[in-house]
């Protein structure tokens, strides 16, 4: 916690509270009372997924290192450099989006291409989230919220946590930088964008799209624990992120081993062999050059070229990223 002191006093005993612009909650050092520092949210709207201990996080880290096909060979030389944890604020809400879309789509029938025009009305239920901080793009935070939705984590109302819990809590609770009203607008806009993107994936071309939020649950602020471990291997540092409610790893940055580089070289050569095979197979098949076939050719060409390009990038790369929670 920061040493900066401004005019905030404990609402229970009146002692001076230590706060910084980064914290949403301050625990009184004298009476242990819970104080909400932020003026933009009510305490009853805040929920938390309590974190496991640092020992549990480290246990999960070493278990992952010993299981991983690349890292287990290096485990003896891996050393923990630092470990930190925070509660990250997310605004979440469930919404129903109603709307109308007019779009065109190509259909292939008896080697002929038909452009079909459709008008559809839709009503979709979506779970939406926005990170309660400005300019945050960390991939760890995106993975954290994805894991939360996927794993359906039980939350606790922050008011119900007792003094002993607050005294034992070692993690800072980060403040929000936009309030409930702003978060509501952001959630609505994100939800409509999400539905639009879904239709863009279905349609070839959208002629008209209109959507509105028909129903929205009151947004709640969810505090999710995120841990960052920095480990050292062979004189270089790598970062790992764990979710805090069960302690499992989310994202692992790993060194690129010699075995992995050999695999990348194999990937480059495979892309050519695979390309020749696909090209030859397509040449042998009788076809007339309809749009359908051209698109398949382009798609397959993209796949083999992508395989070669990504293998080459992996070969010269210094770090590999593995998403672990799925």
């Amino acid at each position: 916690m920061s040493e900066e002191i401004v005019e905030y006093r404990c609402n229970i005993c009146g002692s001076t509270l230590k706060i910084s612009p980064e914290n949403i909650i301050s625990i009184c050092e004298y009476c242990g009372g819970l104080n909400l520092v932020s003026e933009v949210i009510n305490i009853e709207d805040i929920y938390i997924a309590p974190s496991v201990t640092v020992e549990k996080i480290l246990g999960e880290f070493w278990s992952r290192v010993k299981r991983d096909i690349d890292l287990r060979k290096l485990a003896d030389k891996v050393r923990i450099d630092s470990i930190h944890g925070w509660y990250i604020p997310f605004w979440i809400s469930k919404m129903i989006i109603d709307g109308e879309v007019v779009y065109t789509k190509k259909q292939y029938r008896d080697k002929k291409v038909e452009v079909v025009r459709r008008r559809e009305k839709f009503s979709e239920e979506v779970n939406m989230d926005v990170i309660g901080r400005r300019q945050v793009k960390s991939i760890a935070l995106r993975e954290l919220i994805k894991a939360y939705f996927k794993q359906n984590i039980a939350l606790v109302e922050i008011e119900k946590l007792d003094e002993a819990w607050w005294r034992s809590n070692k993690l800072s609770i980060l403040n929000i930088e936009f309030d409930k009203k702003e978060s509501e607008l952001a959630l609505r806009e994100e939800a409509i964008d999400y539905v639009r993107r879904r239709w863009e994936n279905i349609a070839d071309e959208i002629e008209f799209f209109k959507a509105e939020v028909k129903k929205m649950e009151k947004p709640k602020l969810v505090l999710l624990p995120l841990w960052e471990i920095v480990y050292e291997y062979s004189g270089s540092l790598y970062t790992v992120y764990h979710e805090g409610w069960a302690g499992r790893p989310l994202i692992f940055f790993e060194p690129v081993t010699m075995g992995r580089r050999i695999l990348y070289v194999a990937g480059m050569f495979t892309s050519i062999i695979l390309g020749v095979f696909i090209g030859s197979t397509l040449s042998s098949i009788l076809f007339n050059s309809s749009d359908n076939v051209s698109l398949i050719i382009l798609f397959l060409l993209f796949i083999v070229t992508f395989l070669g390009y990504r293998s080459a990038k992996g070969f010269i790369s210094d770090v590999r990223v593995e998403k672990s929670w799925r």
Binding site: S271, I272, G279, S283, T305, F306, A312, I316
Partner: peptide, 22 residues
Amino acid sequence: MLGSPLPFIFSIIPAIGSSIPL
């Protein structure tokens, strides 16, 4: 052998794609 440009296209483009970063 097959009288089609496809095998060449399908092998040279991934080869170029792999070589560029290196």
